[in-house]
Structures are given as structure tokens and as C-alpha cells.
Design a protein around this nucleic acid. Structure first.
Lengths: 336, 336
DNA sequence: GTTTATATCCGAAACGTTTTGGATCGAGAA
DNA sequence: TTCTCGATCCAAAACGTTTCGGATATAAAC
């Protein structure tokens, strides 16, 4: 099924068939109809590789996911990826999956970059100092970073305002009279972690509140570690009156621990970033900092990727979305 | 950076450069060295699209994941994908992600198939009757099914022996004297679900045991539903003495419920397919049916995919791995 | 000295598109 | 009649490879 065959069976030239299919106006309407009909009859589809070679565009985007991230984030990234894949498929653009061997590895990245196998990259789980982004920028290769990093020149990125999100939560607790607010944060070099950490510290400091040494706990991002950390926090009599967690997994574990201790009724306030996971066993309506759905994020990123391919300057491709504070039953005035 | 440029700067023909790089023996060793050096100096990489066009091979594999599956399986599939991606990258083969719009959708599949954008497909989350596989077989397009399905002609597949796995568990409980063994199974049309269900029924029937109406519970695959289902099972006085769950999410919920009721000490036996998830809050060593690691599975599938591309007949690409019963603290002789 | 073999090399075609720069033809304008 | 113009169409080049079928030169065999 090539252009040549279609052309032959219609008694036309390859040129004309090609131009008919690509909507040029120098082909008679009747001819176009005939071509269209023959294409449908024969099930012809243009050879993507020939077109790519000729056009110098690949119509493919590489999605870079470090291996380690996939394991912990409970499918969050993947729902997004699904959406991105969908949106791109609509424009006949392929999505290549690049699982890098280490959080910072870029062996495969380099290969795809130099082999011209994709038009652009989407880099997930951006680090604060990200060698992958540095490599891409160094090669002037188009990319979109999911999360902000530190780079010499401007670049395209999508991010949530983590700083503001955690501040809204912390400030709300402060307004409720809390002075001992603990932070339960993920142990990871990802950019958003330090942004949330920083936001918390600044909110506390701005309110003139001291952060006690044990009140910031860094743990692996899992339910179990959240559970244990919350238990530790609540162990002594000198416990904090509120806890904020930077991930929903940590939050679910913490909620479970508080629930078992009977503190989830408002005794100890709790705000969970992203809200409890859908299959949490906790039925209490836990207060949360919520971001847009993966669905919405995926669409946004796909849109940005397409605009990047269309040559939109990166300075116009920097999108910061604001999270919202959704108050549930676990944020109450401080109990002394 | 094309062959032409390399050729020109060395005073050689394109043919010779190409043959030097591709290891033909009709090029002098000294020439090969010179070519090699120039390639490294200039950072030349062959244009993948030109090569693909010429060779008629794409060096890409499409991974078909239905959207809905990604959301529930807690990253299991993704760890595998990571491994597959890795293994394929080593052979310079790209992995395309195809997120189908519905469990049975095949719109994108058709597009990639007809557009010759991949050499083969890996289809995840096979259904018992899977229209995607039927479509592929109908087009004589190479694929590997992750899980067995019902198809007219032989096809390549990888699967675990779900039937045997659940039977080992059930039979072990029967040998311990249990007669009321409940099954907690996922609500899904995926092939493995009915295989496990069937295996359980046959084991019970072979032992002459009756399955009471309420003893098989079908629930959505989540911790929460497992939790509730186990609570329901244990509600009355006429409760089963053992529970088997077909997924680890259901198992984690069930374990939590049993633990809260004080039954996890052996009062009620529990065997969980795949074992409890890594971040379970349950510290009891729960008995499990374990399969190979995602790592091992990923490698196996990548290997099979490569063999498929090399033209190995599908009848030689049917791999069934056996699960193992790993006994923990939750399988004890029946307590009456 | 011719023939044959061997070791190197290369021209040109092909893969399936897109696109440039005409070519052809009929109709209306001069 | 001749010229111009618009409407259609097409040949050929190009994208960057791979590979077939020689070409050339040097050495060995007759």
C-alpha cells in the first residue's frame, strides 16, 4: 500500500495523489474524491518512517521516568502518562517511554537525543539539580520539565506551587492557634520536596513560631513509614498539636496511626498533601491540599508539548498551577 | 552528521563508510579504524528513520495498556515496563506506550498497526475474550500477550499458572483441616481472575467441600474493599475458617480487618496472592502465593519480544511460570 | 606474459514520502 | 490570431540509509 500503488491504480502521478491527500488546492475536487475513495478502499496509510525521514520531524515525544520514581508513587505518574499518551495519539504523535537506569542517569537519554528518535522530551520527577535537564539544555534539545529545577537558561516547565500550597496549610493551622506543627516529609531529592519543606519553614518563621528539632521528620514515601513517624511524633506527652504531610502515602499512614490512638477526631490536626489515596481505610474526611486531577495535568502537559513542537518559545511555556486547601474534619482549633 | 559528510571528510564513498560501520569484511582494517575515529570525533549517529525506512524494520515495540488497569494495580505493571524498556533499550529498540481508551478499545492499536509504527505489540492485562488480540491476530501482526486469552490460532504469551497457584493455596488449607474456605476475588474481566476462581472451585470440589453462597466475594480491587469484605465474612458466628485473596490489595485490606478483629493470629487462616504490598501496615508474616519479581518477568518478556522480532515461531513463545506457596504465620490448622 | 584470485573500494538503485519548478490545456482577453 | 492566466497535473530531486553488482589494483598461479 504505497502512494505509488494508489497512483498507478488511478492512473495518476504520485505527486498528485500526495497533494490530494495533503489538502493542496491545485488538485481538482473530482480527483481528490477519487483518491480519497481509493485510499479508503485499499486501507492505505502513509508510511510513517518515510514521512519522518523526508520531513525531518519525528512526531514522537520521549517521556523520561527514572526507575526509582515509578515504584513509589502509586500510579500517580501513570494516570498522567495515560492522559498524555491519549492526547498525543490524537495528533498522531507517539510517546516513547524511557526508563532511565538511575535517578540521574542519562545514558538512554543521550542515545535517543543523538539518534534523533524523538522531537522533544518530557522529563518527569525533576530534581533540584537535574543532570538530565542540564544535558538537554546543553544540546539545545526541546523539553518540558515536570517540576522546576535550577538551570542556566529559561526552559519549559509545568509545576504546582508547592511553596504556596504548604504555606496555606501551615498558615491555616497557625490561624487556628496551633504552635507545634509537625511536618512529615518524603526523603527524596525531587524538587517539590524541598519547595514544600521551605514553604513550611517560612510560614512558621513568619509567624514567629519555633520548629522543634523532632518536628520535621523525613521518611521514605510509604504508608508504613508515615504510620511509624506519626506514632513517634505522638509518643511522648510533649507532642505537636498538628501534623502536615507532604504526600498522600505518608498521610494515609499518619492518619491510620492517629486513628488508632484516637487522635483523629480533632485532638491532633492533620492536613495531607494530595488528600488520602482512594483506597484508604480511613473514613474520616481528612483536610487536604489538593491539586488538579491527573487528567487535567496530563492534558495540560500534552498541550504544552504540542506547542513546544510548534516552536512556541519556552518563555511562554512556564505554567504554575495553584493548589487549594480543602478543609475536612481534621483541622480544628488547637486543643490544650 | 550524515554518512555523506563522514565519507567526504575521509575521501571515501558512502558505501565504504556504511560497510565499515556495519562490520562487513570487504573493508580494510586500516580504513575501518579511520572511519571509527571520524565517527567518534564528530559524534555521528545513524539516522534511525532512514535506516528504518530502508530496512523495513522499525525497531520499536508497542506496549498496550488499557487505561483502567493502570489505575488499580499499584505500579506493578510499571515496574515491569521499566525493566522491559531497559532491556529493549540495550538493543536500540524503542518502547511505545499505547494507552487504549477503554479496556477493550483498539482505536490507537489499529492506527499504529496500519501505520507500521511498531514491529510488534506487547499487550498487557489480557482479557478472557480480548478484541485487541483478535484484531492483531486477524492482521497477522506479531504480539505477545501478558496472560492467556481465547484465540483461534496459537499465539505468543507469557503467564503464571494461576490455576495451580490458587489450588496449592486451597489444597494446603484443606490439608490443615479447613472446610470453610472463603475466596476474595477481584471484579475484573481479566483472564487471571477467572483462572484463579476456577482453580479454587475445582480444589474445593475435588476435596468434596461445598462452597457456601457467601463464601466467594467479588469486590473492586482495593484495600478498602478487601477490608470491608473481610469484615462481612467475619461478621456472623458462622464464619469461614480461612480466607484466600486473589490480589495483594484485597489481601492487605483483609489482613487489616482480621488484625483489628484479633483473628490474624491464626484464628482465621489467610493466604494472599502476591503477598502483602511492601508498605502494608501489617507486620504479621502473612502466607502468600508468590510469583517471580517484576524484574524477572520484565526481562523474560523483553527476551521473548526480541525473539519474536527475530522470527521465532509463536508456538515456541508460550511461557508458563509456576508460582510458589510461601507459608507464613497465617496458615494454621483449623480452630473450631 | 597472461590468467586467476583476492583484497578493497565504489556507483547507483531502492525504501516511500514531500516539494520544487515546471508542463499542459482550455478559455477569455488583447 | 496571439497572449495571458488559471486550473490541473507531473517529473525529478531530496531525505539518509543499505546493498547489489561491478570496478580496480595488486599478488599469486599458470
Amino acid at each position: 500500500m504505497s502512494l505509488k500503488q494508489i497512483a498507478k491504480s488511478l492512473g495518476l502521478s504520485i505527486t498528485t495523489v500526495s497533494r490530494a491527500l495533503n489538502g493542496y488546492d491545485d488538485v481538482a475536487e473530482e480527483t481528490r474524491q477519487r483518491v480519497q475513495a481509493e485510499v479508503e478502499r485499499s486501507g492505505y496509510r502513509p508510511n510513517a518512517m518515510a514521512r519522518r525521514l523526508k520531513m525531518g520531524k519525528i512526531d514522537a515525544i520521549g517521556l523520561v521516568c527514572p526507575v526509582s520514581s515509578l515504584q513509589h508513587d502509586n500510579g500517580m505518574l501513570l494516570e498522567m502518562v495515560t492522559e498524555i499518551s491519549h492526547e498525543l495519539a490524537r495528533k498522531e504523535i507517539d510517546l516513547l517511554l524511557i526508563a532511565d537506569e538511575s535517578e540521574t542517569g542519562s545514558g538512554n537519554l543521550k542515545r535517543l537525543l543523538q539518534g534523533r528518535r524523538v522531537d522533544a522530551f518530557i522529563v518527569a520527577h525533576t530534581l533540584r539539580d537535574d543532570p538530565r535537564l542540564q544535558l538537554l539544555q546543553q544540546h539545545d534539545f526541546p523539553f518540558i520539565a515536570l517540576g522546576r529545577s535550577e538551570l542556566a537558561r529559561p526552559y519549559a516547565w509545568f509545576d504546582f506551587d508547592n511553596h504556596n500550597g504548604i504555606q496555606m496549610a501551615t498558615n491555616h493551622l497557625i490561624a487556628l492557634g496551633h504552635t507545634r506543627i509537625a511536618l512529615l516529609k518524603e526523603d527524596s531529592p525531587q524538587a517539590y520536596v524541598s519547595q514544600r519543606h521551605q514553604g513550611y519553614l517560612e510560614a512558621m518563621s513568619a509567624a514567629g513560631l519555633e520548629v522543634l528539632p523532632g518536628d520535621v521528620i523525613t521518611a521514605r514515601n510509604s504508608r508504613l513509614f508515615g504510620y511509624r513517624a506519626a506514632q513517634t511524633l505522638c509518643a511522648g506527652s510533649n507532642r505537636p498539636t498538628a501534623i502536615v504531610t507532604t504526600t498522600n502515602m505518608l498521610g494515609d499512614g499518619a492518619a491510620q496511626a492517629l486513628d488508632e490512638l484516637g487522635y483523629l477526631d480533632g485532638q491532633i490536626s492533620l492536613i495531607v498533601y494530595d488528600g488520602l489515596p482512594a483506597d484508604s481505610l480511613i473514613t474520616t474526611d481528612v483536610s487536604a491540599i489538593i491539586q488538579a486531577t491527573r487528567h487535567q495535568v496530563g492534558q495540560q502537559i500534552a498541550t504544552m508539548a504540542l506547542e513546544l513542537l510548534n516552536g512556541r518559545p519556552v518563555s511562554e511555556l512556564q505554567v504554575l498551577w495553584q493548589p487549594q486547601l480543602r478543609l475536612g474534619a481534621t483541622t480544628t482549633p488547637v486543643v490544650r
